[in-house]
């Protein structure tokens, strides 16, 4: 009797076994990596804005403190985006005829707010609060990266739950003196572990169990 399958099908059979395992692995990788990729998290994606507002110029070159514009950051959950009036504090005189500032002046005249395009966005089922972080010595740059070098704003962290937890498990690694909270050039000193422990005690940072409890962030 003639063979039904040609000899070469042996190879196809073995190959397809192998390919199936490979495909499953690949699918697993895609499933694992997609939610963590910049495509989903928007990490490092520079966001276009209606006005070319540059943190590099205002913070890096001119030395304006974050809190001059983001006034809520020490006292409330929301850091706040400055109203048009804040821009006009300076730009009523500085570059008062520049065309690129016309939308700002128009907004000030008409009272219609500027519509910035949002960069950071946590899902609504997460509770986040700026004031507790800032008042316990977690600096802006630990979460927002080198803002003083950003010509246009981008999100420098993933904002994934694992990112929050990595810090909540061991906040000592980032804690600094309160006066350094807005300091963009702060680098962890060599003895950060020691300093972090002392500061954690001083700020009365709670236990890892409390900080990683689901109801801390999902309430």
């Amino acid at each position: 009797m003639a063979q039904i399958f040609h000899r070469s099908t042996n190879f196809i059979a073995r190959f397809s076994l192998f390919a199936a395992i490979l495909a499953a692995g690949l699918a697993g990788l895609v499933i694992y990596a997609t939610p963590r990729s910049p495509y989903k998290t928007n990490q490092n994606v520079v966001r276009e804005q209606p006005i070319q507002f540059s943190h590099k110029h205002h913070v890096g070159d001119d030395g304006i403190d974050c809190r001059y514009c983001h006034t809520g950051v020490e006292t409330s959950a929301f850091a706040g985006i400055p109203p048009t009036k804040t821009c006009m504090n300076c730009h009523s005189v500085l570059f008062k005829d520049a065309a690129y500032l016309e939308p700002v002046r128009e907004s000030y005249r008409s009272g219609k707010p500027l519509q910035w395009s949002r960069v950071h966005r946590l899902p609504d089922f997460v509770y986040f609060n700026h004031s507790i972080h800032v008042n316990k010595g977690v600096g802006c740059s630990s979460c927002h990266g080198p803002v003083n070098q950003m010509a246009l704003m981008w999100q420098s962290s993933t904002l994934l739950m694992s990112w929050c937890l990595d810090c909540h498990r061991n906040p000592g690694q980032v804690l600094r003196e309160k006066k350094d909270v807005v300091n963009m050039d702060w680098k962890a000193p060599a003895n950060q572990a020691e300093i972090g422990r002392a500061l954690a005690a001083q700020y009365k940072i709670r236990t890892t169990a409390e900080l990683t409890s689901c109801s801390t962030c999902h309430r």
Binding site: A27, I31, T34, P35, K40, F78, G80, I81, R118, P123, D124, F125
Partner: peptide, 23 residues
């Protein structure tokens, strides 16, 4: 196989019809 992929989708819980500051 495809179900876990749905984990990457945004759902209503992420976008609740409530008023967030400045939105």
């Amino acid at each position: 196989v495809l179900l876990p992929l749905a984990g990457g989708c945004r759902q209503d819980m992420a976008d609740q019809p409530k008023n967030n500051p400045l939105t």
